[in-house]
Amino acid sequence: MRAFVYDRSFEGLLSAVFDAYALKSFPEILCGPADPPLPEARSAHRVEVTPEKPVRVFAALAKKLSERGLRNLILVWLSEEKGSDFLLFRFIRKIFDAGSGRGLPERDFGDPDVLAVERLARRVGRKAERYAGFARFQKTRQGVYVALIEPEHNVLPLLLRHFGDRFGDRPWMLYDVGRGYGIMRDSGNRREEFREVFLDERLIEGGGLRPDLLAEGEELLQSLWRGYHEAAAVRERLNPRLQRGFMPKKFWKYLTEFP
């Protein structure tokens, strides 16, 4: 059994594809540098990432895949699901090796890997859309709108354009509590770059920021939203099961409407 060892980055994965075609030898398993050595691995190839390899592989993929197919690659990568890197590796290989048949190789859904990529990408895309709705921002004393999320997949990068567009020139931050990183955009220049931020754990309390960090009037606003949320339900139609189906309990911790 042949193993490829790579640095667990997206560039690293593309470099692994590059190496496999260069060596004409394909791995049966992908490992990270810190993974314990596999007794069954007959030989291991260490993938070296250069600036050139990922660019060339991606450019080749861009010729073979539709825009949607390329987006699916990114979505599957961001899923951070176990084994999704090797799934992508097999998928990319199938795309490169496909002959010119009647159908598009990226839509050969009778193939389990192609279908798995489509389904996983769709799932991650849907989760990102959910957070576009469920992220709740709190205004701080400094006037920054901050939302905390704890997503299963790494969807934060998928939400930046949406919220950037939405907030206009106001400063905001979206923070992934589980992964311990966030992205912030300062006020003023709309084109200003996003920057990565890390929050001290002590600033976070429950599903939000510590109350003393919040702007004056923030508490009133939150109580108005809770009041609205409660009043919007029709008593004769109460259906908490349906509610939880659309909005599972795991989201509730971060939702203002559920104190």
Binding site: G168, A232, R241
Partner: peptide, 18 residues
């Protein structure tokens, strides 16, 4: 402030599931 998304976004669900 603001933008709009073609597919619509659900922000919450009331106790009646709507």
């Amino acid at each position: 402030p603001g933008n709009a998304c073609g597919w619509g976004i659900c922000h919450s669900f009331a106790a009646d599931g709507r």
